[in-house]
Design a protein around this nucleic acid. Structure first.
Lengths: 229, 229
DNA sequence: TTAGAGTTGTGAACACCGTTCACAAAACGA
DNA sequence: TCGTTTTGTGAACGGTGTTCACAACTCTAA
């Protein structure tokens, strides 16, 4: 009896239609400007019908965020892996984070949903549920560990912290660009490139990351003594 | 005839009452959750009355953003200037940007409104109108130029670009924190401190910033050769 | 003092929004 | 064919930003 199966297939099809419609509106207009009613109109259902498939609007965008992490994580996986494989460890790091920035330009709505937006509480509340993101994250951490092993980064650099430091830079540039806080003459690509190179150079320079006794106050003790020549 | 004056004073008083009510609700609940009707209720006016003082809700928050820049720019100006004056140039830079991060913790709603939020279009559209921000910005750029002159930063570091690079880092950390994208065990203070130190070390290391022929592609040429030892 | 002009506040409405719920209709199992 | 289950709907609820005709009050000038 394939009836149950067909029913389930139908259900899944409608679910996907909702997500497709949501995504199209979403990449074109952004989360804020997508309403349940617009999605419903696009798929020719009543607004109430959508609540038979998703418990709330947030959950639709939670699903889209998951899609976003997948999009960011495996862009034609195979060939990219090959491209990366031929590079030096340091250049691989650069390529990985440069891609993060490129993603913010090519898929700004996805990027904002995944890393910036605060209006979809479910995404922050259940952030650890993005299995795919964790996988990608782990992969990058290993890449960074490889840099430490190859003595490209000093041993004081903790891979997990380096990940965050690099992410902060790229997310910062993306935030400046996406919220239109850059002047017309400021090129976000150049800025991203500078942030990336500066941060990588800083990591190589051997700042000790998150040693417990670090002071973080405004008037902290002198820094970067290791570079004082 | 003080009548016109008194009228204008009255008008200004109502205007300020609106802003005060808006600010209180805003710092407590965030921009998204403040409605014209709530503001109106708080000042015991009808919702429509507010439109006699502000052309739209956006404009109210535009005014609050201006307030935010003032808040960030002159926090008990005098004593702070003195505190700063006794520090080395480099530590002054650190203090300035550390304060930017501290501001994001103490006034998260203001910070988001000023640097992250994309739902108040007027703020991005007329960003250059924030005279106060420009002033502060100019002040920091000069501070950075002083670092270059004192040879704390190499001469390849353009102050205006260094400003953006440092800002990107701090805004990135703030974005990660404010949008709850950090795991519970990740300390945002430590991260901010690391980003700051790493970026400063990177700047000192002498990455050339925005030389026109810089390649910014994913598979760019080797970087940081100047540090290869 | 009184008539007109100008300013200021209001109530009701418009067109949206996310969400809920009683109900109808269709599809299924017996 | 009858009862059950699934699926979709229309209408409504309480909310949003915003507009507008109208009332009420204040000031100016005769």
């Amino acid at each position: 009896m394939g009836i149950k199966e067909r029913q389930e297939r139908d259900r899944e099809a409608v679910r996907r239609a909702i997500l497709d419609a949501a995504r199209e509106l979403f990449v074109a207009e952004g989360f804020q400007n997508v309403s349940i009613r617009k999605i419903a109109e696009r798929i020719e259902y009543s607004p109430a019908a959508i609540y038979g498939y998703f418990p709330s609007k947030d959950d639709i965008f939670f699903a889209l965020a998951e899609e976003g992490f997948r999009l960011l994580g495996d862009p034609s996986k195979g060939e990219r892996r090959e491209q990366l494989a031929v590079l030096e460890p340091l250049q691989r790091i650069r390529a990985v984070f440069w891609r993060l920035y490129e993603f913010s330009r090519q898929q700004p709505q996805y990027f904002a949903l995944m890393f910036l937006d605060r209006s979809v509480p479910r995404i922050s509340r259940e952030y650890e549920r993005f299995a795919f993101a964790h996988e990608t994250r782990q992969h990058i951490v290993e890449e960074l560990a490889r840099c430490v092993n190859a003595k490209v980064f000093p041993s004081t650099v903790k891979p997990t912290v380096a990940l965050r430091v690099l992410m902060a830079g790229m997310i910062g540039v993306a935030a400046l660009k996406l919220s239109d806080r850059l002047a017309p003459e400021e090129d976000p690509d150049l800025l991203a490139s500078d942030v990336l190179d500066t941060t990588i150079a800083g990591l190589r320079g051997g700042v000790a990351l998150q040693t417990p006794e670090r002071a973080v106050t405004c008037l902290a003790e002198p820094i970067a003594d290791q570079q004082a020549s």
